[in-house]
Write a protein that binds this DNA or RNA. Structure first.
Lengths: 210, 210, 210, 210
DNA sequence: TATGAATGAGTCTTCATTCAT
DNA sequence: GATGAATGAAGACTCATTCAT
């Protein structure tokens, strides 16, 4: 192993060390309440060192966003594997996203944060890295839809668009949870998700001989 | 006009004066960057006076959120009126939401801010007032769907749920705009909206004699 | 009853109305947390009116201080009456001050506030009125000591000085309550009071044939 | 000298720098009127730096309180040393406290402030550190009384209690200075102190063969 | 590389008092 | 006499980032 190789490894180790602390704090205190100084203290590094490895606070959280997407990917992959039919797979994936938004609330919040903060614009490198994971997640859905089409289970839709629409719909519905008691008229918002999925599948199959 | 009547009117005028400044700043600088002191200066009132009319900063923005919903309501109503068939109405309403998210980006941002900030919880009075407007907006959609069902144009779906799902889906897709160049593979995200709407309408009508 | 007489009475009623509110708030929220606006609201008068009857916030609290002294006077009088021998009277009065400092903590705090805030200097009129009540309280003690001397129970001390010393000692000990767990070595500070009184009485009687 | 050693020294120097400013302002403007911004400006440090060395405003003043106690301790030790007999020592210590309350009025005020502010409760660490100094002061008195007892000069009293009572009495009398012209009937309140001390000593010695 | 002390503009909010009506 | 809207300086405290060592 060369010197530069070791350097590289140590660098990664340091970055991980920082992320560990940031993650812990994010989960303990939430996004807003986590400060650079706290991360420095918990990671047993100095503030200056943090800035040696990350250009600013946002970059650290961007890394955590990627982590969140990675985790989500795992969840979705698992859900996909567990299910048998294409219908079940679609439903399974959908609910694994819903569940993710609760069980890993902090990761979901951070994903959402970057998705909905208007000003925020990442340096392309980071943004691409993140979006790639998002792309992988989408691909799982796309593949399911494709295989459903292949076996004649689903009608011949545009699989990518169909996948994006599903994910977007889920994402939007999650936002409405806050209005459960008012606009959603006290009905559990999961019922809305179910309802949406029923229609989604119905649409995928209508006109298809079953 | 009695004294108390004039007082009341002046009070409203002051509140409007404050909102004018807050709105201007919100549009110029964005949500996070707008401070109480700025609002005070621009409205030509003292900081103390602001706190006479609004309990805190959040309340001012809550008022603007309500404003945003009201404006959205107007837009949607207009779109509904302009369209003739139920199909057109659905599409018109949907795109008026999409357009709203661009044309009145700041209002959309503020709505989204309150929808997705996890910690934030308004005093019930305020929350209800806002959610009521949201309810009115939803109702426009519900009515369109209902009338579509009545005239045999749409199949007999649950109109409230169908409406929520539509709005949620649109809301979610808007978030994905940020990924236009990556996940959405350089396709205009409006095409996704169109695609989604096609399917939405197809679903509403499938099984219905046309 | 003349007009000016009624005016006078109404004026006093207003002042009482203000004091009622101020007292309630003082007891509910404490000295620092009570604001003029709160007093105005609770008394159902306008802020401006408050300033018509009292020159400033301090004057209102000065009135309450007087009240506190008056109440203390009652307590002490009662204790004096209840006791039979001069010894018992001294002890009774002393403990009624100690009890007052707990049972009417807010009044004690306000008395102490004016006594120990260095900058504060009242307009002579107010100060005199208050000190007069303080003088009445002192007189109760003086009288007890005097009558003790008269009946040969106590030796011929300077009754005023002896009274001041007793009151001062009690007042000082009350301040030490905060150090119960440290300097006072976990012994109840009432025991210190008892101890002090024992010695005080012993002193009053030593050399006196008993 | 190692690096960490120098760091430690510089840290202490900074803390002293801050205290210097705080002390100066405390003496010039009084307790309530001294603000963090003033301290920052006078100490030629930024506000943020102040908060690097002290958790909040209270902690700075707590430090000054400790300083006051330390100074008082010196004064009392000196008085104790200067005097020869136990009687003189008691009187000397007592008047050094009285003198302290005038000559170092601001230190006395701050001590009194913390002693009589009801809400204020320090974090245990700080409180203990302060109370310890208070304990040291008390011990001087206790030792004097003890040695008086040992040499048969004083009767066998409880030395701690006797010491606390003396200090408490002095502390209380100082508060009454404000009423010199009214309740104390225009007599110099030092005479009251003298009178109190006479009796205190009389009590300490009565029954003892002289 | 690594440190961590220092920055200081900026945050929201409070409140006794005034004065035109 | 009575009102109460308006004031605005002042308060304590935060925190991402820098830079000399």
């Amino acid at each position: 192993m060369g010197l530069s190789e070791r350097r590289e490894r140590e660098k990664l180790a340091r970055k991980e060390q920082i992320l560990d602390a940031a993650r812990t704090l994010l989960f303990k205190r939430g996004l807003q309440a986590t400060t650079i100084n706290q991360i420095a203290k918990l990671s047993e590094l100095s503030v200056g060192t943090l800035y040696l490895y990350y250009k600013n606070k946002e970059e650290i959280f961007a890394e955590l966003e990627k982590e969140g997407f990675d985790l989500l990917y795992q969840q979705i992959l698992e859900a996909e594997n567990k299910a048998v039919t294409q219908d079940e797979k679609v439903v399974g994936i959908a609910f694994s996203y819903i569940d993710f938004s609760h069980n890993f609330k902090d990761y979901f919040d951070i994903i959402n944060y970057f998705l909905s903060t208007p000003e925020l614009l990442f340096p392309p490198v980071i943004k691409n890295r993140i979006d790639k994971t998002a792309g992988k997640i989408l691909k799982v859905l796309v593949d399911v839809i494709n295989s459903g089409i292949d076996c004649g289970h689903f009608r011949k839709v545009d699989p990518v668009k169909h996948a994006v629409v599903l994910w977007g719909s889920l994402h939007g519905l999650i936002h409405f949870k806050k209005m459960e008691e008012t606009m959603l008229q006290n009905e559990n918002y999961r019922d809305y998700v179910k309802y949406m999925l029923d229609n989604y599948l119905y649409n995928l199959k209508s006109g298809v001989a079953r």
